[in-house]
Structures are given as structure tokens and as C-alpha cells.
Amino acid sequence: MRDVRLAVCHPDEAVRAGIAARLHGASVVPIADCEAAMCAGLGAPEEMLRAGIHVLLVAEPCQSATGLEVLSHVARGSGAKLAHVNPDRYLPSRQLVRKQLAGPLGDTGLIRTHRWDARPAAEVAGLPEPLLRDIDVALWLAGRVPDRVCAVGNTSDAGRVVQVHLGFPHGGSALLDYTDTLPQGEGYTSLSVIAASGAVYADDQQNTQLLYGGGRPLALRVSEGTTALAALAQEFVNAIRDDRECARSNWKAVFAVAGAATQSLASGRAIALEAPT
């Protein structure tokens, strides 16, 4: 089977090289020579799709519902594949959590995420964009969509705090909080899942090293590297080679939840959510 000619559009040369080095069944080529493109912070996905180029659109940031609809329409017209995928799903920690839930841990009971940033994020569907990715991860891990959504938040000079609470029909729930109030510097993320037969804890607090340079030690977080993007690119390449649908996030459900959360923020009430068709 021939290699897929893939363009990797990413602003960081080291990341591009890292992805290229890890791909099986693909040759990384310039945009002008590609049949498929991975657009991660660079590239013109709409133009590529019009030209019949398959596009993997890394959802960081997420597209709006309207923007995604436009791209889907263009892709349908040209016959190109479009995958708009949340890269957070491909983080090694999240992949491991998902595998454990499908294996020994069993059904999800309570999903908890914290995401704290130092810079304000763009707003998509009325919420800070990273929160949409967290909603996507929560729905993916839960394997179902919520029937109840309650969101609260506040704003100060320091920034915004938003918390989204999802209730699932089986009694499980998810608590997702986001803030951009951190002082300038690195952010913090944490994911825990309480499941039927156990639990998982993926927390930056557990994954820090200490640097002693005088005074109080610095906590240095060990990142999960670029393996998430490489895994994402590989899945895209495999889908093209196998001529199948690309794995994708359930954006329709994510936007439905985001809409309910926005409504809840505005009204101060919990919002009932019907399962999307």
C-alpha cells in the first residue's frame, strides 16, 4: 500500500519533525504536493478541502458550530475527508484513561477536570474554547450525553472562572472547571474519573519535578510531549489508507452541551438537555 502524502501545518518546526519521524504509512511533504493535510494552528483548511485535499483539523482551538458546518459542507462537495478532532483525546494520559474505562474500571460515575490557564482563551459557543475540549473529553469518557447541565461562573479583573456540571441519565456526573485567572506562566490540568470498579487520577500535581535554585523549590511539570499530535496524525493517515471515516469528536453533542451551559449561566437554572439525534 502506498504512503499517504501528508502536509503537516504546525508553527513549530520541532513538532513538525517529531510528527514526521513517528508516522507509519505516510510521507511528509510540502503543502503543494500533499493529498492530505494536518492543520494544527496553520494552513487554510477551507481552501484545501475545496481542492479535494483531505484535512485533519486539530481542534485547538475548536471551530465554532457555524465554522465547522461550513467546512463540512465544502468537504461534502469535494469528496475530501474532514476530521475535526480534539487533540486532548490523544494525550497519552487520556488514551490510557479511556482504555482503562473500557477495561477493568467499568462505567464512569464521576468525571472531574480542572483546567487553569494564564491567558484568556477565545470564546466559542459562549464558553472559553478549552472548556469545549474538556466537555468533549468528558462525553467521550462517559460514553453518553448528559440530560442535565448547570453552569456557574464569575468574572473579576483577574479573569474568568467557569464551571460546568453535567448530569448523565444513569446518575453519573461530570464537574468541569476552567479559569484564565492564573498569573503569567504555565497552566494546570487535572482529570479524575471515579468508575464502577476503581478510579483514575491524572493530575499535574503528581507529574511535577522539583528544581532547587534557592528559596522555595520550583515545581516543574513534565509534559506529555508531542505524542498526542503524532497519534492523531497516524489515525488520520490510517483512515485515509483504509478509506474509512476518520475518528472524530461528537461536536454536535458538545455544542448542545455548550449551548445549555451558556443558557444556564444566563438564567441561573439547570437546563434539561435532550439527547441529540
Binding site: H114, A158, D177, L182, P183, Y188, S190, S192, D203, Q205
Partner: peptide, 16 residues
């Protein structure tokens, strides 16, 4: 697991 996460206007705390 017993934890506290506190977000403030000038920083945040993660407490085990």
C-alpha cells in the same frame, strides 16, 4: 483522594 483546588485573583492552590 481528598483534595482542594482554590482559584484566586492572583494565583491558585492545589492541596492534597
Amino acid at each position: 483522594d481528598i483534595k482542594l483546588h482554590i482559584v484566586g485573583t492572583a494565583g491558585a492552590l492545589v492541596v492534597d
